[in-house]
């Protein structure tokens, strides 16, 4: 199978994670392929959010949190001493479970990442903002009110705005931590369509507690349980033909 030979976008080897003295991730190793959607599933508290937040080092802001092992993106260790965390976070975007638009205008929200990166040219900004909002399937709904407050948008629109904001800085990887869990079914399906379209251009890792969602949108699926990676395979295999009993029990709804 060729995709085992090609270099993975994200390569995780023997990764452990600790909150203070308690170990929450045990020896995680997996290869995440480029330009595909990889879903992380598992019951609450199994460590999938902690894991995904370790990829862009968002866990750095938690005191007493520590990871050991390696996470490599394009062959470079994310936790190496000389890694520029700011540059890492530009390259690896993140969308959160609860949408968090800034209390600024729609325009300023999407422009935020660009402005702190130093971009000042208005025409460039306008262009990228339009492109990002279009990619997030939000442009037509907001193009006439770019300078209105982002807080006036609906929940689903706010989440798409957060996606546009993340896409604006042109990341290579987009991490999504349960992006649709706070949304109604219609907004959720819009987000899922979006994810499907985005994978042509971005590597996507999505945490979801909704198995049907994982089955719908992802190419590869990783099943986590109590901080361990139980099984990782093509999505079809995980859902139709799981190798581990625990996986089978989970995906058939025997627990979770």
């Amino acid at each position: 199978m060729n995709d085992i030979q090609t270099e993975s976008k994200i390569s995780v080897r023997n990764f452990d994670f600790f909150y203070g003295p308690s170990k929450v991730l045990h020896d995680i190793s997996l290869e995440i392929p480029a330009q595909k959607v990889t879903a992380l599933i598992g019951p609450s508290g199994c460590g999938k959010s902690t894991f995904i937040r370790s990829i862009n080092r968002m866990n750095d802001i938690i005191p007493e949190a520590k990871g050991t092992g390696t996470i490599m993106i394009d062959g470079k260790d994310v936790y190496a001493g000389d890694t520029d965390v700011v540059e890492l976070r530009r390259k690896v975007g993140m969308v959160f479970q609860k949408s968090n638009p800034f209390p600024k205008s729609i325009y300023d929200n999407v422009a935020y990442g660009l402005k702190i990166g130093g971009m000042r040219n208005k025409r460039q900004l306008d262009e990228i903002i339009e492109r990002s909002l279009t990619r997030a399937a939000l442009w037509h709904e907001v193009k006439d009110r770019l300078h209105d407050s982002a807080m006036a948008l609906s929940g689903g629109q706010q989440q798409r705005l957060c996606i546009a904001r993340a896409l604006a800085v042109d990341p290579e990887i987009v991490l999504m931590d349960e992006p649709a869990s706070a949304l109604d079914p219609i907004a959720t399906s819009k987000i899922e369509e979006l994810i499907y379209e985005l994978k042509d251009n971005y590597t996507i890792v999505i945490v979801t507690h909704n198995m049907q969602q994982a089955a719908r949108v992802s190419d590869r699926t990783a099943f986590f349980m109590l901080g361990r990676l139980v099984e990782y395979a093509d999505t079809n295999a995980i859902f139709m033909n799981p190798k581990e009993k625990m996986t089978e029990d989970y995906v058939t709804g025997r627990f979770g």
């Binding site: 976070r89 959160f96 800034f102 935020y112 990442g113 702190i116 957060c162 993340a166 800085v169």
Partner: peptide
């Protein structure tokens, strides 16, 4: 969540504080 959003976009801590 606002702080996390800013940091995830590549803001340094002080930038996140003063701009968001």
């Amino acid at each position: 969540g606002l702080r996390e959003g800013a940091l995830a976009l590549g803001a340094t801590r002080s930038r996140a504080v003063f701009s968001v």
